[in-house]
Design a binder for these strands. Structure first.
Length: 423
DNA sequence: TCTGGGGTCCTAGGACCC
DNA sequence: TCTGGGGTCCTAGGACCC
């Protein structure tokens, strides 16, 4: 019998920080979103102090200081690196692995003869803790939606010790009743409000709800959730990562901008990142969108996007830069303080797909030169870490860059920051 | 003063076709 | 006065996820 397992890192970002800095272990810490905006992760100690998720940092700053909570900017190169390590360790313990997010994995595992997966899960858990200093939670069930629920139960039930097998209980409904609709995977704010209005409060009640009514209001997504709650398998563990359908780079500014030059510079920097990402994924775009907006919390909101379709897909930074800088004029408005901007590469296709036949006809030295230049820049940047070589437009002073005042070191990815241990 | 970023999937409705 | 039906493709926007 096959079991579906959901494994995730507990308080992942906070655990990563505590793992590289022993001074932080056992202490209340919170991690802030980009721009040091909101609280997006908390250590258990911070959770115990009733610090909420998602609230703006500036509103809580004083209270955090009083309570002695350490706040850190998010350090994605650290979390990304820890994630890669976690995933490669998990591989040896699971048959199929689908990396679902930076700290979550779906896996499929065969049950042993006695059908008891607890010994396997306990061993895996301690192996990961020994290797990375990170605690994981393991939810086991017969499909993805239920594995998510099992993981949730593993975190909330005192008796579970981080592992819960929902397919190995004889009173499943009692457990489903413990789970509020809001915390079911795929049920968000809007849907849970609608369900609660209808008197549906928990997973058991959603499972037993009128099927027609669900289909009508929530479409196939709702239908699928209900079917999985009933025990069907609608979603499979996808081992092979599908190629991306869009690539986006966007940021809030450290301080708002009003000048066209600044907007252009920001968009250019995001474009350079987006194009490099595209080449890394072996993709080309034929549809480019840029956007900007004021703060969502200002009295008068301005937002605008501009879009261009391309006849031929491209991954060339210089080609895309030219387009973006033209489009920038369309979205710029001097009357507003712009708080955020971004670029989107859509309509992505695999690079090798087009090239082979078309190159014979469209072969020209300019495009070959530009390709060689791009390849050289990419490889130099890879070798010397990012930004070794870039475009002139990125050089002027940037007043608008995001704030990351509380950043930890890149200890696991940069030899210069390797921790020193004094014995 | 200060409120994240990067994705996916689905649906409704318009444009267009025969 | 009477004015088709059925299909596809594309896009924008909603909802959700971590």
């Amino acid at each position: 019998m096959e079991a579906i397992v959901l494994i995730d890192g507990n308080n992942f970002y906070a655990s990563c920080e505590q793992s590289i800095n022993p001074n932080l272990r056992g202490k209340p810490i919170v991690i802030l979103s980009n721009n040091d905006g909101c609280i997006i992760a908390r250590s258990p100690e911070a959770r115990a102090l009733k610090i909420e998720m998602g609230i703006p940092y500036f509103k809580e700053k004083e209270r955090l200081n009083q309570l002695g909570v350490v706040a850190l900017s998010s350090n994605y190169s650290l979390y990304g690196d820890m994630s890669r390590r976690l995933m490669s360790l998990l591989k040896s313990y699971c048959e199929k692995l689908e990396i679902y997010s930076i700290d979550e994995v779906f896996a499929s595992v065969s049950r042993p003869h006695d059908s008891n997966l607890y010994p396997w899960a306990r061993e895996l858990r301690s192996f990961i803790y020994q290797s990375l200093g990170i605690t994981i939670t393991i939810g086991i069930a017969e499909n993805k939606v239920k594995a998510k629920l099992a993981n949730k139960l593993a975190k909330t039930l005192n008796s579970s010790a981080g592992i819960f097998d929902l397919a190995n209980v004889n009173n499943e409904n009692d457990y489903l009743k413990k789970i509020s609709v809001k915390s079911i995977w795929g049920v968000g704010n809007k849907t849970s409000k609608w369900l609660i209005d209808k008197g549906i409060k928990n997973a058991k009640e959603l499972k037993d709800m009128n099927e027609y009514e669900i289909k009508k209001k929530l479409g196939v997504i709702g239908q699928r959730i209900q079917l999985e709650l009933k025990g069907h398998k609608c979603l499979t563990v996808e081992e092979i990562r599908k190629s991306k359908k869009e690539i986006q780079v966007s940021r809030s500014f450290g301080s708002p901008i009003t000048r066209l030059e600044d907007l252009k510079q920001a968009l250019a920097i995001y474009t350079i990142k987006a194009a490099a990402k595209m080449r890394y994924e072996n993709l080309k775009t034929s549809s480019i969108t840029i956007f900007t907006r004021t703060s969502l919390y200002s009295n008068e909101i301005y937002q605008k996007s501009a879009h261009k379709k391309l006849l031929e897909a491209t991954d060339s930074t210089s080609t895309i830069l030219k387009i973006i800088l033209d489009l920038a004029i369309e979205i710029y408005n001097p009357n507003y303080k712009l708080a955020k901007a971004g670029v989107l590469m859509q309509d992505l296709s695999l690079s090798d797909y087009l090239q082979k036949t078309i190159q014979l006809y469209y072969y020209d030295t300019n495009s070959m030169k530009s390709r060689n230049l791009t390849n050289t820049i990419d490889s130099l940047n890879k070798r010397f870490k990012t930004e070794a070589l870039s475009w002139g437009i990125t050089l002027n002073k940037k007043k608008w860059e995001m704030n990351r005042r509380l950043l930890s070191d890149t200890s696991t990815t940069d030899i210069r920051n390797i921790p020193t241990i004094i014995i």
